[in-house]
Write a protein that binds this DNA or RNA. Structure first.
Lengths: 164, 164
DNA sequence: ATTACTGCAAAGCATTTGCAAATGC
DNA sequence: GCATTTGCAAATGCTTTGCAGTAAT
């Protein structure tokens, strides 16, 4: 939930979503447009609940139910990606206009670090061929400590949870 | 939830869990033993709710609350692994006595296919070094269609969701 | 004897859903 | 004009929690 001050490139995404809706015989509505625009303004991960809360008290409010329903559509349309790691609840991430990438999640500060590697993608393709599996997409998450938190650990700071 | 007819190798795991509990100054109890044994009998993924339901009506019943609490301990002890893909809710998988592996999840039938690849692990290590990230563990999931479901798709069967 | 653990049942919370009104086609 | 979508709020289902009794140390 870090809305950018300006969102000039949401037009393309909206056109793409319209095409998706038309293809599926579903309707192009104001709430759907509002939800997409707001989702695109989130530069990093966000939860449905956050977006719903933000839109409930927005200029042109949209209800919780509609937000949840529309996020599902946006995922199906390929404009958003579901993230199910590091938290019990689903997170979303904008994928439109971005290259596929993976994540490292810091156990300590919860920060997400993005990375991508063509070789890894190739290895996964290979594994799929071996198992006759037809890949649609994939997800890689590495858990551990980011550079800063590893340094803190090194200085002898106690773990945030590690009481005793 | 596929209990094996015989479970001869749960002794080692129980000893390991006991050691973990002692180290943490927690108590070795019957319910904890029962829960571990039952979890070990699940050859694939299971949900807390499933295990809780099974144990609630078991020979020596254990309550839901205790199951949830103990599963958390088992994860901390490293005997189970949390899985957060393919479903909103957490899945668990036995890790003790097994090598680390990754998953392919079928979009259609939900089946999990396990695979492992040393080269991929090496690539991930490399990526971590590049980002000064200290890996604790990682998780890879490939989404798509398994062999059988891909064949069904090929025969012209309509998609389960795709009305049109 | 002391203190943690369990069982129970109720609370908590994100998400889903039913239905009347509104909107898009 | 008709069917879909929305908004609202209540329901749902998994998970957590408080408290009194029980069991482990």
């Amino acid at each position: 939930m870090n809305p950018l001050p300006d969102a000039t490139d949401d037009h393309d995404a909206w056109v793409e979503f319209q095409q998706f809706l038309r293809r599926r015989g579903e309707r192009i509505t104001q709430p759907r447009r509002i939800i997409l625009q707001r989702a695109l303004q989130c530069r990093d991960h966000f939860r449905a609940e956050e977006l719903a809360a933000a839109l409930a008290q927005a200029d042109r409010p949209v209800s919780r139910g509609t937000v949840y329903r529309t996020l599902g559509l946006l995922v199906e349309a390929g404009l958003l990606r579901e993230i199910r790691d590091g938290d019990v609840h689903v997170h979303y991430e904008v994928t439109v206009g971005r290259e596929h990438h993976e994540h490292m999640v810091c156990d300590r500060c919860g920060r997400f670090i993005e990375f991508s590697d063509a070789d890894i993608a190739e290895q996964l393709d290979h594994a799929c061929r071996k198992h006759n599996f037809h890949q649609r997409t994939h997800r890689i998450v590495i858990f551990g400590l980011c550079e800063k938190c590893a340094e803190k650990r090194g200085t002898g700071n106690p773990s945030p949870t590690g009481g005793g």
